[in-house]
Nucleic acid binder design. Sequence first.
RNA 1: GGGCCGUUGGCGCAGUUGGUAGCGCACUUGCAUGACGCGCAAGGGGUCGUGGGUUCGAGUCCCGCACGGCCCACCA
Length: 871
Amino acid sequence: MSAEATTPRPGGDRPTGVPDKPGLEGLERTWSDRWHGNGTYAFDRSAPRDRVFSIDTPPPTVSGELHVGHVFSYTHTDAVARYQRMSGKSVFYPMGWDDNGLPTERRVQNYFGVRCDPALPYDPDFTPPEKPGKEPIAVSRPNFVALCHQLTEEDERAFEHLWRTLGLSVDWSHTYATISDRAQRVSQRGFLHLLAGGHAYQQTAPTLWDIDFRTAVSQAELEDRDSPGAYHRVRFQRVGSEPGSVDIETTRPELLPACVALVAHPDDERYRPLFGTEVVTPLFGVHIPVMAHELADPEKGSGIAMVCTFGDTTDVVWWRELDLATRAIVRRDGRLGAVPWGEPGWESDDPAAAAANYDELAGRTVKQAQKRIVELLSQSGALIGEPTPITHPVKFYERGDRPLEIVSSRQWFVRTLDLKDRLLARGQELAWHPPYMAHRFASWVEGLSSDWNISRQRFFGVPFPVWYPVDAEGTVDFDAPLLADEDRLPVDPSTDVPDGYTESQRGEPGGFVGDPDVMDTWATSSLTPQIAGGWGTDPDLFDRVFPMDLRPQGHDIIRTWLFTTVVRSELEHGTLPWANAAISGWVLDPERKKMSKSKGNVITPLPLLEQHGADAVRYWAASGRPGTDTAVDEGQMKVGRRLAIKVLNASRFALGRLVDEDGAVTAPGREAVIAPLDRSMLSRLSAVVDEATVAFEGFDYARALERTETFFWSFCDDYLELVKTRAYGDPAQPGPASARSALAQALSTQLRLLAPFLPFVTEEVWSWWQPGSVHTAPWPEPGELTDLGGGGDPAVLEVVSEVLGQIRRAKTGAKRSMRAPVAVLTVTDEPERLAALALAEDDLRDAGGVVDLVTHPGDQATVDVVLADEG
RNA sequence: GGGCCGUUGGCGCAGUUGGUAGCGCACUUGCAUGACGCGCAAGGGGUCGUGGGUUCGAGUCCCGCACGGCCCACCA
């Protein structure tokens, strides 16, 4: 062993010899640099499709820090990638950064203390303040976008550092960002194809709207939150000859001016006589019809509901299906807008009174307006009783702070409702891991109630490659969009000019305007296989990697990322985007609570990596079953670290028998393995190889690890103990030669089995005695081991280990050292098992310190140990 | 309301075609042993949520229920 052996030589091509004091410290830095320098994980793009394994890596959202949940799931994917690479596949394992969209905007706003005002001109000299001020500074859209780029680049460097420390075997030359020109080109091209195929359309329609972000959101971005509210009982007087009144209950009395009908169930006897008649709204004197609809629930409130434009999604359904009037009052900023009382659509019995009452509400937020209208209703006598407080589910944008409103606006949609059956069939065609995750997808598709809204009224995103002509009167013609030519992509319609126009015509009569919106972040993320695979720019690459083999992701984004990717692939290519979807679980905090920023229980991974080492953290992650929620468990990381240390020490021990005077490791050939104990061990190891391989083929990395680890510990505890005396013998003799060859075989195999999980320590040990990288070494095959001498009898190691265990038990029971000699060992067992024992009798004697061995055939297996006297 | 997952020693989990309950952590005791004290050896500890059923035999298969978590739908 040479002194320089502790520091591996650059290159890693030639073995370094076994160091005296192996350790885990610094392995991450050493080996991640070396892998990078050597291109260990480079994708071989000359490989034909059937030799390629391609992964549609989730691009993490670039808004702050990665958390330990990322480490968890990306480790799973990395283990699979490493297995596939060792199995001979050329692994296409790119990394992406999801850096467009709202999360980035929000972070930039807070980080720099700015807000985007698209009306402002670009300021080339703008620099953000050192510290964000109290009031955000308004900046132009180009300035804002520049800040977004600046901040995301910083974050992405930190992300890459973390991934390298964790040891992800990503090919970093295939990195993409969702805001990059490349992604924008793919995204815009995909949009133009949707348009050409009739799959995308624009429409002015009631839209889910976040009043703080001032943008539309899609069905997939909704979440329900239990919120406080109150039932208000409001009395409507009947119109015409019929005397009497109708009471409704509502949680949104402020929408009374927007009321367009009352609705009850068609079979509800209480209200049947009223269908087809009219009532009048209190305070505003508007005549509205009473109508019947199946969705009205006789059990709820008074059994009859007030329909407003628009209080919730059910209102939209009623409005559409009953062909009701439109009286929208909520503006896009969440305040009530002006209303022309008495004019068409706003006819009232008393326009002046209506206007006076409404003046009390106009300009207020919905919350303020609610408070005021309750007072007005109470004074007028239309409010019956006191409001009853309730807690009820209210729809929120998942990132928003205030309830969604529904406003009418012009949006781009992708036709997904027409696609349900095809999508359900694709869902069944996809191999889900674990399989039950398929239900999530199916129930989402079955429950779709609207087409996919892909436009967002935001700034940092992929713009629509679309302009609209402005006619001579200055009116924008949205029905005749001017499309960008595919060769020009990506374009920004706010600065680029459509063919045939000049910049001076922007916004002028007879000129054009750009589409002001950007695409939903999922409209771009749904194309990650196309972006990563070079769709449209590198057809040779794309043909080799698409459809991809694997989409790994969390179950929380099945209805967004997975769903939209399937939609886009179906519409663009008519195939599934990948063959397999591996769905990982959540990471919970040590108290098994879901981690979230608001709870303040988010754990950042770098300190864990520094404290326990990357292999140890990976061990914890890889112990989490596919699809299973797993708690952060530093205890498991300590176990992982112990395993890594054991790999170092056991390897040093085994290789110590194989080192020559120059420090080089030389093992006898495979044919030297003749001892029954050695062959028995190799035979058992080959079964482990089998199991690990089957598990990995089914993406069950956790099972592969568990089986490998179990074998490894028994290998150390039993086999190494049994064989070490013989292995120290004269290398020229057949017994020692067999032991040394078997040790080399077994160590090589186990290092390769562990390499997907513990890439650093296995590479370190590999470098002591093997050329090249363990990560490009071939995955072990059972044949490598069973070919040796025609396979061994697994029973030999089993029986000998059991007897050795009994000897240890006797020594521990007598509180004696493990070195204490055994005067007489008497074993009674079945003849076949005694025969197996006899084949390794000498190894057992050496390991147990046995002087006399007596065996008796018998039905009942017993082991009797008589220890030699002390002294 | 529809659906999915889980319920196994104090804690975290495994248990793949049904055949006398396993692993790690923690706990107790012991051991300086040709690599490892970040080690090694051994030990105690569970009527496998619950009620039925199938079977010679059920943690494992079937039906019901309870509890926990999640998805979808509804939400006046």
